[in-house]
Design a protein around this nucleic acid. Structure first.
Lengths: 185, 185
DNA sequence: TTAGTTATTGACCGATTAGTCAATAACTAA
DNA sequence: TTAGTTATTGACTAATCGGTCAATAACTAA
């Protein structure tokens, strides 16, 4: 029918995600995306759209991979406290390893883009909601205030991401995790 | 001795702060700063330095005004729980009023600039530390784990700022405030 | 009045920005 | 083989970016 695409869509989306995750929207140039994906500018525009559309693709991919990973983690067997502790420990681990400065694309997008882009705001709110519901489900049977507590846990989680990016002492994140977990039992 | 400056330094710093606070570093152009301050580009460079230096000026001004305001609030008379509740309520109020989307320049700088600018990281870490010590002092006489709890409160506070910017339901911030306060008493 | 110093001004610079497009290539259905 | 469709390519554009600078203005000490 027509000429087939030569690139692996998943790999390209992953590359887009990594660049925006590390540098943010404004600090990322189309050339950065060209370098990271291996595609030329025209191909990127042809396949996905303009820079904003590429950002949305990256955001969606982050949701479907990293966020989903977290949600899956929360859904498994075992006590809620352990699962949620793991969530925080992944922040500490990322910070220790220097993985994108321990930051999270969802958090970055909330701060940089959500206030100036309705579509990003919608996407970010939906993802936060999904994550909250997963936390709520995890602790649901253990406390009567699951909805309130889950929101609080998401809040502390996002705060931990900011602390990591700020280069705050990791002990601060660990302490926050521990204090946060006391709210469950 | 020489020609005197024609601008009010404090007003100019305030204007710089507002622009960077609202738009972030990368999304702010020199033209934005020219428009906001009323100074021409040459004057800005002459008086403060390049764009990065202007950002540092804005960050410092934020620290000396808004952050200091918060610290002063924590230092007054009354129970720690009330003071800290006020801290969170100021986030809710800012979000409700649409003041820079309820965001905080310290939080924004942590996410956008700290990972890529050592000087910003140093400044941000120092400010966070100062804020934490103020919280610690406020709750110091009421609990034996003041240091740990203060870090946790800062964490939740930053998370609340992210939630506000994401456009999350204000109830989520209020719930987080209430849960957080239970950790004090 | 003059010499020295600094502030202000606006034109100017090269580099980079996001985005476009016509030419070509690679495929398939007929 | 051919006609139709889409992907790839790289040159191209207009606008904007951060930053510089020589000319001029405003002041003070001598």
């Amino acid at each position: 029918m027509a000429r087939p695409r030569e690139f692996d869509e998943r790999k390209v989306k992953q590359a887009l995600m990594h660049v925006f995750w590390q540098k943010g929207y404004e600090a990322t140039s189309m050339q950065d995306l060209v370098d990271a994906t291996g595609l030329l500018k025209g191909s990127l525009y042809g396949a996905f759209g303009d820079k904003r559309a590429l950002y949305m693709v990256a955001l969606e991919h982050y949701d479907h991979t990293r966020i989903q990973q977290g949600i899956d983690m929360l859904g498994g067997e075992g006590p809620a406290a352990v699962k949620i502790a793991n969530l925080f420990d992944s922040v500490v681990e990322a910070a220790r390893a220097g993985l994108f400065s321990g930051g999270c694309l969802l958090c970055n997008a909330s701060v940089e883009m959500a206030p100036v882009d309705k579509q990003v705001e919608g996407s970010v709110k939906a993802t936060i909601r999904r994550l909250q519901l997963a936390v709520e489900a995890a602790i649901g049977t253990e406390t009567s205030e699951a909805s309130m507590v889950s929101g609080f846990i998401i809040c502390t989680y996002l705060g931990a991401r900011v602390l990591a990016k700020a280069g705050a002492p990791l002990q601060m994140i660990i302490d926050s995790r521990d204090r946060c977990l006391q709210s469950i039992g």
